[in-house]
Amino acid sequence: MKKIITLLAVAGLTASLYANENTGCGLGSLIIKNQSTTALQVLAATTNGTSGSQTFGITSGTSNCAKPNNFVSNDKLNRFVSENMDELAMDISSGKGETLSTVAKLMNVENTPEFSAKLQANFSTIYTSENVTSATVIDSIAKYM
Results as ranks from 00 to 15, higher is better:
23 T>W: 01
133 T>S: 15
10 V>W: 10
56 F>K: 10
122 N>K: 12
126 I>M: 06
111 N>G: 08
30 L>D: 02
45 A>T: 09
26 G>M: 08
69 N>C: 08
86 D>V: 14
95 G>C: 03
103 V>L: 01
92 I>Y: 00
43 L>A: 09
4 I>Y: 12
12 G>R: 02
34 N>R: 11
16 S>P: 05
104 A>L: 02
12 G>K: 00
36 S>I: 02
132 V>E: 00
127 Y>C: 05
86 D>T: 14
19 A>M: 08
108 N>L: 09
106 L>F: 03
73 S>F: 11
93 S>G: 05
34 N>C: 08
122 N>I: 09
85 M>G: 02
21 E>L: 10
129 S>V: 09
72 V>C: 09
138 I>Y: 00
33 K>H: 06
89 A>F: 05
143 K>D: 05
127 Y>H: 07
76 K>H: 06
54 Q>N: 12
85 M>I: 15
100 L>F: 04
39 A>I: 07
120 Q>G: 08
16 S>L: 12
1 M>W: 11
21 E>S: 14
73 S>A: 13
143 K>T: 06
92 I>E: 00
6 T>V: 12
116 S>L: 06
6 T>S: 13
9 A>F: 08
7 L>Q: 15
99 T>K: 05
123 F>R: 04
58 I>F: 12
70 N>K: 08
7 L>F: 10
134 S>R: 04
104 A>M: 02
7 L>T: 14
46 T>Y: 10
145 M>W: 04
97 G>M: 03
40 L>C: 06
71 F>A: 13
29 S>N: 15
106 L>V: 08
21 E>N: 13
28 G>R: 00
20 N>C: 10
